[in-house]
């Protein structure tokens, strides 16, 4: 009998909604919430020995602690597999599920996450298996059927394929083809002319269509954050932010300052001439106007820090992750709106 640890969020653990989204990782014996149905589907071959849950706002940032909890599970024969989700289209939950599964996979455990194909966390799973869930929690039952089937396949070391609902990244592996690209291109043209309208060697990349958030009801009482991809940092670049292909983002306090002086701040962005930005750093981060709007009463307040990264050759996966992390952090901090300046 294989031992499974199930990862879920605070909501599905029955702890609470947004009010509990900041709760830290917690270990519970046996299945919890959707894990109960999952355990029934897996029985009698496999069992859910424990559940780890964590609040959505912080989960993706405390993955090592979650993995430590999973490894601490006291069970005969050790943990055989980590299952995460279903996360449906919930971004923060999906990101956490993807990262927990990927980290478990890196730690040498079998792992699988479940979420909808449009979940922005999907890319973070890397090549760790992910199976499709429904779009919303109403689709829990079929989503759990599919997850249980995937767990069974993985525990039997059988391939998990698109036919089983597998989604997400399959690594593009470099191989030698039998024919040259020119020969294959002519073949593909003739196949297309022959009526096959889908044949291709490269599937189209999926780019997100982001639905804008609802307007803020009353900006006069709202805390507004300033965030930027313009690479603006203190002059010495103390956090060593990358000028291109950024892999991270940084935060700097602005609560105590009213303006950004030339010479004290600098854009390290590698994708444009930064001369004008450095002449007046407000061209990248409009702190001056932000302070003015607060003074006029148009904004309730400004968030005490700004978030910054560099948008220059940055991978879509990293950019998507920055967005999820920024949104979670700001929501948790009470900001109701953010002004994102782009270059």
């Amino acid at each position: 009998m294989a031992n499974i640890v199930h990862y879920i969020n605070q909501f599905f653990a029955g702890v609470g909604g947004e009010d509990s989204a900041g709760a830290g990782p917690t270990l519970v014996a046996g299945p919890v919430g959707p894990g109960r149905r999952l355990a029934e589907l897996l029985a009698p071959e496999h069992q859910i020995v424990a559940t780890v849950w964590c609040g959505d706002d912080i989960a993706s940032g405390v993955v090592p602690a979650i993995i430590d909890l999973i490894r601490s599970v006291d069970t005969d024969g050790g943990v055989d597999l980590v299952a995460a989700g279903p996360a449906f289209t919930s971004g923060r939950y999906g990101l956490a599920c993807a990262r927990v599964a990927a980290a478990a996979h890196d730690a040498g455990l079998r792992a699988v996450a479940s979420m909808h194909e449009d979940n922005p966390g999907l890319d973070e799973a890397g090549t760790t298996p992910v199976v499709a869930s429904g779009e919303v929690a109403r689709r829990m039952a079929p989503s759990l059927d599919r997850l249980a089937n995937a767990i069974g396949l993985l525990l039997r070391d059988e391939p998990l394929t698109a036919a089983d609902g597998r989604i997400g990244k399959l690594a593009r592996l470099t191989v030698m083809a039998d024919a040259t690209a020119a020969e294959r291109a002519v073949d593909l043209a003739l196949v297309r002319l022959g009526g096959d309208h889908t044949a291709t060697e490269i599937p189209l990349p999926r780019f997100d269509q982001v639905t804008p958030a609802a307007p803020v009801e009353d900006l006069r009482t709202a805390m507004v954050a300033l965030v930027t991809e313009g690479g603006l940092v203190p002059d010495e670049n103390p956090g060593s932010l990358e000028s291109a292909r950024a892999t991270r983002w940084l935060r700097y306090p602005i609560a105590e300052i009213d303006g950004l002086q030339a010479g004290e701040w600098r854009s390290i962005h590698g994708g444009f001439s930064t001369a004008y930005a450095n002449e007046d750093p407000h061209r990248i981060l409009p702190l001056d106007v932000g302070r003015q709007l607060v003074a006029e009463g148009a904004f309730g307040s400004l968030f005490g820090e700004y978030f910054v990264t560099t948008g220059n050759g940055t991978s879509v996966a990293n950019a998507r992750r920055f967005g999820i992390e920024w949104a979670a952090d700001l929501r948790h901090s009470g900001a109701r709106a953010a002004i994102l300046t782009a270059t």
Binding site: L170, A171, R172, L173, T174, V175, M176, A177, D178, A179, T180, A181, A182, E183, R184, A185, E201, I202, P203
Partner: peptide, 10 residues
């Protein structure tokens, strides 16, 4: 299109 190098999902 000179080469035979390609990339495939795997």
């Amino acid at each position: 299109g000179w080469g035979r190098v390609t990339a495939r999902a795997g």
